[in-house]
Design a protein around this nucleic acid. Structure first.
Lengths: 224, 224
DNA sequence: ATTAAACTTTACAATTTCTTAACGCGCAAA
DNA sequence: TTTGCGCGTTAAGAAATTGTAAAGTTTAAT
């Protein structure tokens, strides 16, 4: 169930938002000021927070800044509510880590579609993270064409990346030279004997040599 | 009703995919070879096409290329299916205009969520044209066709704006040149080799060159 | 119609990536 | 021990790809 926290100091707006979101099946919590908002966010861990900017005590911008300062709210979607045409505020809102802003007056239909869009976008980002191949201490990101070892980003040139991807696609399997040629260069391209070795060497240099093993006279394999 | 066309020459895989997608409420059509696929796609006008790459006669890559050549399939989501140890074809898949890439063996859960994610993404691109995208220090305002860095307004010409928007739509993802052509110029327009570079160059000149990275032989990506 | 802006092409420079080639090492068979 | 084979290593330069400036072309606006 998707949890949404709505924060606004005006009761009627709060009710209006809350009603429309609940009607769509969301689990809605509310707060009427900035401090409450922080406390309730801590307690309920919402997926999305709708923050009015103009509030007494702690304004929405400040609430957002404080939330973003804590790691557990890094992924939370935060969207602001603001009166129409306050360009300057909008910019500021995004500066403190807001994902979107909605201008008042709010049409229910727009609100709901905007909220859904934001949640979708967030979910997609999560889905895309699943597309990363993880082997031993390496994470291979095909979409980004890069390899991660811990926090370290390792950029590989095309051929090296393809080679690594091939070896890693079946950890432990031995790939013969023929097989590697066939799959990476294709049947028609002819390259010299040492070409693969050189690429293997560079890979070892960059990702560590323990993982890629040579089986003399047979081929190479990636071990975990 | 969302229509999906599944194409694979192995009957059991076809059944497996078809079963799992139908269970989720999709309207599924099938084809067992490339030529059939083209014919059925014409007839049923599916929203999404799942294409096995390895097929006799006409392989998935070629089917995709031909589909993309026709305007009515420009918006259709196309995703490839491939065995794990053929991962290296990924770049090729993107080149011919594929939207995603699913590797066998396929887990039903993953398949379904991936398919839904793709459809969502497609839908978002259609009906989410009115919000501001914030990435790193940039705010990109679609309706005003302008970019903000802090308080500074950066006006971009149309092509440059489209290019930036494309790269930023999925930060970190690598877009191949072919993909950029497809999405910005369309399949029928032919422009010279250096055209993209020039636009990239101008973008870098205006928004700073650190963000847009070149991956030689692959494409460009927007990082951070 | 004139001008300016946007877009594309051209020609070449710069850069990165890939491949080659020469040599060394180790191991196993002769 | 010697020989031969296969692989590792290195550096150089080939090949491929991209960057850049400037000139041409199209498009839009006044």
């Amino acid at each position: 169930m998707t949890k949404i926290l709505v924060v606004d100091d005006e009761e009627d707006i709060l009710d209006f938002l809350s009603y429309n979101l609940k009607k769509e099946g969301f689990d809605v919590a509310t707060a009427t000021n900035g401090l409450d908002a922080l406390a309730i966010a801590q307690k309920t861990q919402p997926d999305l927070i709708i923050l009015d900017i103009m509030m007494p005590e702690l304004d929405g911008i400040e609430v957002c800044r404080r939330l973003r300062a804590e790691p557990q709210f890094k992924q939370t979607v935060i969207t602001f509510l603001t009166a129409r045409d306050e360009d300057f505020t909008q910019i500021k809102a995004l500066d403190v880590g807001g994902d979107d802003y909605i201008t008042k007056p709010i049409k229910p239909q727009l609100l709901v579609s905007r909220v859904k869009a934001l949640l979708r976008r967030n979910k997609i980002e999560k889905d895309e993270k699943d597309d990363i191949i993880a082997v031993s201490d390496l994470k291979i990101d095909r979409q980004r064409v890069q390899v991660l070892r811990g926090e370290e980003i390792i950029d590989l040139p095309k051929k090296e990346f393809e080679l690594l991807l091939l070896l890693v696609s079946r950890p432990g399997k031995v790939f013969t030279r023929e097989e590697i040629y066939h799959k990476i260069w294709g049947n028609d391209v002819i390259v010299g004997d040492r070409t693969i070795d050189v690429h293997i060497r560079k890979l070892r240099e960059k990702i560590g040599s323990d993982q890629i093993k040579t089986l003399k006279g047979i081929g190479y394999k990636f071990d975990l």
